[in-house]
Design a protein around this nucleic acid. Structure first.
Length: 748
DNA sequence: ACGGCGATGTCCGACAGGCAGCCTG
DNA sequence: GTCGGACATCGCCGT
């Protein structure tokens, strides 16, 4: 038996399968072991398994390193976990690195296979990770993402890697797109195309009481209310779940609430318990009214999903839907491209979405993407994707425009200037490109070149951008050689847009010291902080007046004040960030600015990253004070605290709220806390947290001597089960500690 | 006849999502 | 394209 066949046998075993499906048979051939491939087939057709086999082949048989990249952090870790679970017994060293998940970057070289996001791979190349040179295979998950606003990043990353490592294999996994063959010719690979689905997908349109499907079958449903409610009742009567796609957050919330009148009658006791337990598990994280509202929605069996939810609730929602306890999930497009969360029925509530050009019909590929979520493998033999029509004209129209329509060709987005600018600096800093000839050579290798035939208009853009980079001081031409300057190299590593970097430098180069608001205005004045928080229209005038009074103190000059059409949004966003580090409560922030927890925390995440970048730029410019300020600001943004609490928030489980409590009780440093009376710490923080904290600080204490303050009364409870024994011990202590206790109670 | 308050009508505004640094368990 | 909040108007009721 050949190595390849032996491997296949092992993999089948690890996956607990006997035979491959028709797509996998097509894609898995020994002769493909050295070629590049594009595998275009529907979601859940088992592409991942094919990729896994070639990954294992590379590692175990070719003894080379392999990388798997995907567009989302969540997808990356999903693939990582599943791979690890299945093949850890093969004796592999498996690593992952995404923006906030890291197997420890320095040691990535110790891994044989590494799971990354697109951008993380790009970033590693920018940092010239030396282990990249032993790379044998790159698997690109969802390669059709080349046609997205992040597509230019992927496109240049691939070309760059191809130039550094001409012998590296590439396998791209794609949706079934019409021009998959162009992707294949781009990577010099073979195209494996298959429409195979393990669960059959029926695409249909609901009008009145009929669902007409693309396979010419018709399904009748009971009509009582409006279409969406009828179809939901029908789904629940069949003991199935539905995933409903809407076009706005508000709509998803409104619809979920409406559908709860139905779902709550279909929840059995067991399901109610599962949901209640799940919520209880994360109860301590549900700090705002909005969180509590989300939790209440979950309890009704129908809920909503969008990026305004905090991570913990998003994850719980997904989990409950997977478990089947949550019957109906109404989602914005998050779930169309995100983790795989299948349901028997996918209901697409509307095909219109608001864009910069007004309300427009969504592209067919998005319809395909959403439809692909229909049908749960292992539970259903078919899945249904359903559009809703108001009249027969619309019905006809939807059939033509969506059900029977081919998705659009995948297009190159390399011409998208902000990303092109960033990537151009990167390839110059990496010395991949150093003169006109190498520039042309590089861009002739792109997917853009295949799509457009020539790169003339692209090269014109590049010329302009190159001049821009030179004027900004990030690139210089030295004896005919294009080179990145020191600062240019650092900007490339920091992974920020050169334009943002330029704005930052302009602001700090003549400044030795910044106020908090000045600093935050610089943060906000970057592309990475977009989209800004938008003030309501009724608020704009007041903000304009405020800004008039304050702009000089914010480091804004009069030109910016008058010419920057986004100045109000920037100012507004800065104000929110400033409130956050001034310890305005999360609830107040959400209320005052009409924002949602998830939105706030995403913005804070970006903010802290940019703070770091500003600090690093300041370092290169020898702006020592600004550098220090940046470090402080980054910490304050992460914690949401005033500077005085930063010593305390170093402690585990001590965030903004607990740190403030400790501070009010005159504990201001770690050593203050360490030398504190355990009893008082418990009074301030509660038993669990205090216990963990004391353990962390390695403070010994006798639990028998501890009183626990009861919620509503002034009574004290003995922790120890064995009361009689404990009571005796405590009576004496009680008198001693009473005084302290009174004092500390008084103080918080 | 007047004023207060809730019900109904009208107008206008707002509208998806998500990656990247570094560090340290 | 459509939902919903803000505001205006209308109508009922009590005084």
């Amino acid at each position: 038996m050949s190595d390849f066949n032996e491997l296949i046998a092992k993999v089948k075993d690890a996956n607990n399968i006997l035979e491959f499906n028709e797509m996998q048979i097509l894609a898995l051939k020994e002769e493909y072991c050295d070629s590049n491939l594009i595998i275009a087939s529907p979601t859940s057709s088992g592409k991942t398994l094919v990729a896994e086999i070639y990954l294992l082949y590379t590692i175990l048989i070719k003894h080379k390193r392999a990388i798997f990249i995907s567009p989302l952090k969540a997808l990356t870790s999903e693939h990582y976990n599943s791979f690890k679970k299945k093949y850890e017994s093969f004796g592999l060293k498996i690593g992952i690195s995404t923006g906030d998940l890291d197997s420890s970057s320095k040691y990535l070289e110790n891994y044989q296979i590494i799971f990354l996001t697109f951008e993380k791979l790009d970033s590693l190349i920018r940092h010239r990770a030396s282990w990249l040179h032993t790379l044998g295979l790159l698997v690109i998950d969802e390669i059709h993402n080349i046609d997205s606003d992040r597509g230019a990043t992927l496109e240049t990353t691939v070309v760059e890697l191809k130039q550094i490592l001409p012998s590296m294999r590439i396998i791209g996994l794609s949706a079934t797109i019409p021009n998959a063959s162009q992707l294949a010719s781009w990577i010099n690979g073979k195209l494996i195309y298959s429409e195979y689905r393990p669960v059959k997908l029926k695409k249909g349109i609901l009008f009145e009481n009929k669902i007409k499907f693309d396979d010419n079958t018709i399904e009748y449903i009971q009509t009582k209310n409006n279409s969406i409610e009828d179809i939901v009742i029908d789904t629940l009567e069949k003991r199935k779940q539905a995933l409903v796609f809407t076009n706005t957050r508000k709509n998803s919330e409104g619809l979920a609430k409406k559908l709860q009148n139905i779902t709550k009658n279909y929840l059995d006791e067991k399901e109610k318990k599962i949901i209640a337990k799940a919520i209880d598990d994360i109860d301590y994280l549900l700090t705002t009214d909005y969180d509590k509202d989300v939790a209440n929605n979950l309890l009704q069996g129908a809920s909503f999903h969008h990026a305004g939810l905090r991570d913990s609730l998003r994850n719980k929602t997904e989990e409950l839907f997977k478990q089947g306890a949550l019957k109906i999930l109404v989602s914005t497009p998050t779930l169309a491209a995100g983790v795989n969360l299948p349901a028997y029925r996918v209901i697409i509530h509307t095909v219109h979405r608001h864009t910069a050009n007004g309300m427009l019909p969504i592209p067919v590929k998005e319809y395909v993407q959403m439809s692909g979520r229909a049908g749960r493998q292992g539970y259903d033999t078919i899945g249904e994707s359903i559009l809703i029509a108001k009249d027969d004209l619309e019905e006809e129209n939807l059939f033509e425009k969506y059900v029977y329509a081919l998705p659009e060709d995948v297009e190159s987005q390399l011409g998208y200037v902000p990303v092109l600018r960033t990537q151009l600096l990167s390839i110059i800093a990496n010395e991949i490109v150093f003169n006109d000839e190498s520039l042309e050579k590089f861009f002739n290798e792109t997917f853009y070149a295949i799509r457009f035939g020539d790169i003339n208009s692209l090269m014109q853009k590049i010329e302009t951008l190159l001049r821009e980079l030179i004027n900004s001081g990030f690139v210089k031409i030295d004896k005919g050689v294009i080179k990145a300057t020191e600062i240019g190299k650092r900007i490339s590593e920091l992974y920020i847009d050169p334009l943002s970097a330029y704005n930052i430098i302009e602001k700090i180069k003549n400044q030795d010291d910044l106020t908090n608001k000045e600093f935050l205005m610089i943060v906000v004045n970057t592309i990475e902080l977009k989209p800004y928080f938008m003030p309501g229209k009724n608020r704009v005038q007041q903000l304009e007046e405020q800004l008039q009074d304050e702009y000089k103190d914010l480091g804004i000059n009069t030109n910016e004040l008058w010419d920057d059409h986004e100045i109000i949004e920037k100012y507004y966003t800065m104000t929110i960030l400033n409130d956050w580090i001034s310890e305005v409560s999360e609830q107040d922030l959400l209320n005052n600015y009409d924002i949602l927890p998830g939105t706030l925390h995403n913005k804070l995440y970006n903010t802290s990253w940019i703070c770091y970048a500003i600090g690093e730029i300041a370092k290169v410019l020898d702006k020592t004070i600004v550098h220090k300020q940046a470090i402080l600001m980054e910490k304050r943004i992460k914690q949401g605290v005033k500077e005085e609490l930063l010593l305390l928030t170093e402690l585990p489980n001590i965030g903004r709220a607990r740190a403030r409590k400790l501070y009010q009780n005159h504990y201001r440093t770690v050593s203050d806390v360490k030398s504190a009376d355990p009893q008082i710490l418990i009074n301030i923080l509660g038993l669990k947290i205090a216990q963990k904290l004391l353990e962390h600080l390695k403070v010994e204490f006798d639990i028998n001597t501890i009183f626990i303050k009861q919620e509503s009364t002034e009574e004290h409870k003995i922790l120890k089960k064995d009361e009689s024994k404990a009571t005796k011990k405590i009576t004496k202590k009680k008198i001693k500690t009473e005084a302290k206790l009174q004092k500390s109670l008084f103080e918080y």
